[in-house]
Computed example of a mutant assay.
Amino acid sequence: MPVAFNFLIAIEPLGWLSSGAGQFATSGNISVRTRTSFPPHTPTLSGLYALNYNDSELEKLQLAGPFWAKTDDPQNFYIPTPFNYSIADWKINDRLIWNSNTHQWQTGSGVALSDLPPSPASWISIHDWHQPQQTQPNPWIQFPVCHSRLKLDERQLALDEQSNLFQENVIQMNPATCLVYLANLPLPNSWYRFGGESHIVNLDCLDLAVDTQQLLNQRPGKTFTLISPTIWGSNRLSYTEPINIRNDEREPIWDIEAILTQPPSAFRHRLGGKLSRGRYAVPAGTVYVLNSPLMTTWQEWPEAWFPSEGYSFKRWGCGLALPLVE
């Protein structure tokens, strides 16, 4: 079966990007403050496809991400580092392996670890996937911007009970980097308004490198890692693995021996003017160890493994995984 992704979408911000994603909190004298959610999930990109395709064509849309790359080499994009890699000074100094006999994660030298420290947010090059040695930190910085109400007759702040402050977290990416998504349909190269605050970005659509298509078409095997945020389960509940629901009985589909993960991340989007149900995604970098190898490619996984809200969440790249060397 051919790989689902034929195109690489490189998005270069022409200024700031929003990181709020509609999540709000209150703190002190700031009445509304957006929480950080970055980079944007794939439903954000689907809005650009709605400008260029009709409804029947959009039924076939398939996306994955988010990733990032250096603007001078977008094909060598960066994906989230698996959580079983031990990192120091952005170098991979060890790899944790699941020991089926002791039921513990252990280092390559055989030292068992019962409590695993959380890995820093980092990324590895897709070209270095088979032998990664170096990782990269997030290529962006976040800083707050406060908005407040002005007096109607003066260019001064209205310091009264109605002077509510709104703190927006904005993102400045390294000028030499861009966001990257994978898709099965092309987009015209152009400038677009992207994200909740409609910031201007430059978009380039490239043919995805053949070797990357071949990598993504591999069977996950016994040990694999997610490279995209993933929501499994039904329309009402989210799980850490695919679940069959029959007569209100929940039955795991995979025979899982171990999972190495971190706290879930928020996943919510607006599509067709409607706000989706708030969900929590299993983070990219999560490692699964199965008792029996998974011998079907991601493209062959049934959409029933994922919730559906207008479209199956597989459309957004949920579950996209790469095998790990055991």
Score class of each variant (00 low, 15 high):
Ile171Asp: 05
Gln172Trp: 00
Met173Ser: 15
Ala176His: 08
Thr177Asn: 10
Thr177Cys: 15
Thr177Arg: 05
Cys178Leu: 13
Cys178Ser: 15
Val180Leu: 04
Asn184Asp: 02
Pro186Leu: 02
Leu187Met: 07
Pro188Lys: 08
Pro188Gln: 09
Pro188Arg: 07
Asn189Met: 05
Tyr192Pro: 15
Arg193Cys: 14
Gly195Ala: 05
Gly195Asp: 05
Gly195His: 02
Gly196Leu: 00
Gly196Ser: 08
Ser198Asp: 14
Ser198Cys: 14
Ile200Asp: 12
Val201Thr: 10
Asn202Val: 08
Asn202Phe: 10
Asp204His: 14
Cys205Val: 03
Cys205Gln: 04
Cys205His: 02
Cys205Trp: 00
Leu206Cys: 05
Leu206His: 11
Asp207Met: 09
Asp207Arg: 08
Leu208Ser: 07
Leu208Asp: 09
Ala209Gln: 01
Ala209Arg: 00
Val210Met: 13
Asp211Ser: 15
Gln213Lys: 14
Gln214Asn: 12
Leu215Met: 10
Leu216Asn: 09
Gln218Arg: 07
Pro220Phe: 00
Thr223Asn: 13
Phe224Arg: 04
Thr225His: 06
Thr225Ser: 15
Leu226Ile: 02
Ser228Arg: 04
Thr230Ala: 08
Ile231Lys: 05
Trp232Thr: 04
Gly233Trp: 01
Ser234Phe: 04
Asn235Ser: 14
Leu237Ala: 09
Leu237Ile: 10
Ser238Asn: 11
Ser238Phe: 01
Ser238Val: 05
Tyr239Cys: 01
Thr240Asp: 09
Thr240Pro: 04
Glu241Ala: 13
Glu241Ser: 14
Ile243Phe: 01
Ile245Gln: 07
Ile245Met: 04
Arg246Met: 09
Asn247Ile: 00
Asp248Ala: 08
Asp248Tyr: 01
Pro252Thr: 04
Pro252Ser: 07
Pro252Trp: 00
Asp255Arg: 06
Asp255Trp: 01
Ile259Gly: 12
Leu260Trp: 05
Thr261Leu: 07
Gln262Arg: 14
Ser265Gln: 10
